[in-house]
């Protein structure tokens, strides 16, 4: 039993946020279906089943437009914080350490340790890929989510156009529609505000015990120390 408890404790963040994601996605599906059917009734159409709604572009675009902006946020933050610093922020590294840092700092090449991942010790293209793997994967999820938003938003937009007895648009045409850019930018703006405010608020504010914060007693000017 202690072994099971330890395993659960050791994976608390991944487990709890994964379960919260599933619960909230169910909540989104239920409330989204209710709103969708309100609109169906308002235009004199038949309400749809949950199964129909879950396979609709209306549900899909609402999910993936939020996904793409979250992964854009993480992708930009991971890349931005290589080169950009914020003096005094726990979200930043020290102001004189900008850039990709030395092989010694990063335990790469000749500085790899015996317990380093094997692609680090390879020293060829595998080391180059592994050195960028977090950014590559988060960037790929962003691009794929944004593409998914474009095709699901396009399908949902055309369904609405047909309902209004207006002409459907091509996918490229949809990329020029206000609907696509409104969905995109309303999510992007909030992510940029959240990232910027996190970087700046963490200079002067503390959260005891959180690795996202400096120690409570750290000076406002201290950069990159975590509590």
């Amino acid at each position: 039993v202690t072994g099971v408890r330890r395993t659960l404790r050791d994976n608390g963040l991944g487990l709890v946020f994964g379960l919260l994601f599933l619960a909230m996605l169910v909540g989104q599906a239920v409330s989204g279906l209710a709103q969708y059917n309100d609109q169906q009734i308002a235009i004199g159409a038949e309400p749809v089943s949950l199964g129909h709604y879950l396979t609709s572009s209306s549900f899909a675009v609402d999910v993936v437009e939020n996904w793409q902006s979250e992964y854009l946020q993480f992708f930009l933050y991971i890349f931005g914080t290589i080169w950009l610093v914020q003096r005094g922020s726990s979200e930043s590294k020290e102001v004189d350490r900008t850039g990709v840092e030395s092989d010694a700092d990063q335990l790469v090449g000749a500085h790899a340790r015996s317990d380093s991942p094997c692609w680090v010790r390879a020293g060829d293209w595998r080391t180059a890929v592994f050195s960028r793997s977090l950014g590559i994967v988060l960037g790929a999820i962003f691009v794929l989510s944004w593409f998914a938003q474009s095709v699901t938003g396009w399908a949902a937009y055309n369904a609405e156009q047909l309902g209004n007895r207006e002409d459907p648009v091509t996918w490229l045409g949809y990329l020029g529609e206000p609907d696509f850019w409104n969905r995109t930018l309303q999510n992007w703006q909030s992510e940029m505000l959240a990232v910027g405010s996190m970087a700046v608020l963490a200079v002067y504010l503390r959260q005891r015990g959180s690795p996202e914060s400096k120690p409570v007693g750290a000076a406002h000017g201290d950069t990159s120390e975590t509590g």
Partner: peptide
Amino acid sequence: VSLTRILFIAYVGVITIALVYFTLVGLLGR
């Protein structure tokens, strides 16, 4: 196999399958 590795595979798998599914929903014009 550790739970950490299972979580990694679950996250990557769910995201990948969901993105393929949603993209197909859009392309099929549902």
